[in-house]
Design a protein around this nucleic acid. Structure first.
Lengths: 293, 293
DNA sequence: TTGTATCCATCCACTTTTTGGGTGGTTCAA
DNA sequence: TTGAACCACCCAAAAAGTGGATGGATACAA
């Protein structure tokens, strides 16, 4: 067992990982799978499959009647750690068009749909200029449609981080007009112009740095069975789970969790979760000042 | 321009795409970038960079003082279509641990955070058995913690699709106890046992098949400027956007959009969007019968 | 000024990967 | 029984990649 693998080349490693991925999730691999996915010759695909057998002898066997390699009962992955999150993320990526089905490793995609998250597409060059400003610690002039001004206006911001509120992407930035840290919704940035050094370099974004703990539990009016189900959904232990959130994102987190309204606004079965003690919520009210412009 | 590219090998194509990705998003590529990402020798990395120049002559130039290849002003991608969604999805994947920073193509990850989506991890073997049952059109016996029964119980379900409600993953299934189609939250499936042919094969999941259109617009009490900002966020045209949703997912979609409560439960600035005419909402009430057990 | 370090380019011989052509075996279904 | 669809294997040749060596340009520090 102490054999050292002689550090395979990147392309080879990828193919072995692919074989293992298919073995785990689909239960079988074909020579033709490798041919389609990596564009290799049937010849080479044979070679790769046999290379895999040479490295992981007992993981797959050829089923002559099925005409495929199938996962053996004592399969244990060598090149891949099977991960549900990764598998499900891939399904979503394909559904959203981020990954083409040809590039996805899942062979037989299950029928899938998700609740829609309507968001305007972001111009890649605008996103790039923001990301580059963050990296270079620069201020950048953006044409922004704020909630207050009638028309889009040019203004200087010094972005330092990206944030996702569940729907929209924000550029967490120091607004050079007000001198305060705010969230700028990237889809409201219509254009970018020049960059320069930021005005106030040494300021730190306190609401961003500070982490508050959100203690959440199942709705107290639910039955014991219902509570158990909710606990499973959210990975709660003994009736609670603690969720760390940046204070700058607290407002959005509460909204996303459905905890931003009076608990009586929904029936317990719909509300499902409630905030347990939350000493930070009062601070959260202060953080309104750091919200979207 | 009519030159036919002689269909490069998969590994080579990947490296050329990587070069272009880095050129677009970061503005520069190094030989060492290729060495780290693909584990090739400095020698080979030189060759690949020069191969790229041979194929896309005017896209990058070597900056001797910067000691890197930089994107030229007339850069136009040949192997890649720059896509913000894809870039941002990659950031999220790295943050969620789905993709390791070594595998990500983004070289200089911006600081990033998102509102937390607390969800219990799903056992890959349980997910696999569900996915395989979907593919084979089989019924499967699962140990499920329902909202009604006190303890988890074994029951037969015939899953036909996966769904994501914004937090949790569901297996849309025909419940063989009630004969109705329901959502089963995958994290509430504690175990799976054997499979067999489904009881009623020919039934169709009407609530799943039917698509309703959700007409959404900015909150009418917002100012004109605020409406314009919201319209940009959601990609609305002339004050509205139409969002197609499966009727089986309508309940979750409304909840996620914050449209499941009385519009007066939040201030207009927090509510942001309202349902415009929605003739399907009354049907949506019926769909309660198809919801989670 | 003179090293030194860090990039990159290029030439060479050699190994590994991959292709293409060909030959043959097994299983299944028409 | 014949063809289709899998697979395995052998061979020569091309392509990709390695390791070693040499050299050029630039920047930085002693």
């Amino acid at each position: 067992m102490g054999e050292e693998r002689p550090s395979l080349r990147w392309g080879v490693e990828q193919k072995l990982q692919f074989i293992e991925f298919r073995l785990f999730w689909e239960g079988h691999v074909n020579r033709s799978d490798l041919i389609e996915k990596f564009g290799v010759s049937p010849n080479q695909a044979s070679g790769d499959l046999n290379r895999y057998i040479a490295l992981a002898e007992n993981n797959m066997i050829y089923d002559k009647s099925g005409k495929t390699y199938v996962r053996s009962s004592c399969f244990s992955p060598l090149f891949l750690k099977p991960d549900s999150t990764q598998y499900l993320a891939q399904i979503r990526s394909v559904a959203e068009g981020v990954v083409s089905p040809d590039d996805a490793w899942i062979g037989n995609l299950p029928v899938f749909d998700a609740t829609p998250a309507p968001a305007r597409g972001i111009d890649p060059t605008i996103l790039r200029s923001i990301v580059i400003a963050i990296r270079r610690v620069e201020a950048i002039e953006v044409r922004y449609q704020s909630m207050s001004a009638q028309d889009p206006e040019w203004r200087w911001i010094a972005p330092h981080a990206l944030a996702f509120d569940g729907f929209r992407w924000h550029a967490r930035s120091c607004c050079e007009k007000s001198g305060e840290f705010r969230d700028f919704v990237i889809s409201r940035i219509l254009d970018t112009r020049q960059t320069r050094a930021p005005q106030k370099q040494a300021m730190s974004d306190i609401a961003w740095e500070e982490i508050v703990e959100l203690a959440v539990g199942p709705h107290p009016e639910l039955s014991a069975a219902q509570k158990r189900a909710i606990e499973l959904d959210y990975g709660m232990h003994s009736g609670r789970v603690s969720i760390p959130v940046r204070r700058a994102l607290l407002y959005y987190a509460l909204k996303r969790l459905g905890l931003d309204t009076d608990p009586s606004a929904r029936k317990p079965q719909d509300q499902q979760i409630v905030l347990l003690s939350d000493p930070n919520l009062s601070q959260g009210a202060n953080s309104m000042s750091g919200r979207i412009r």
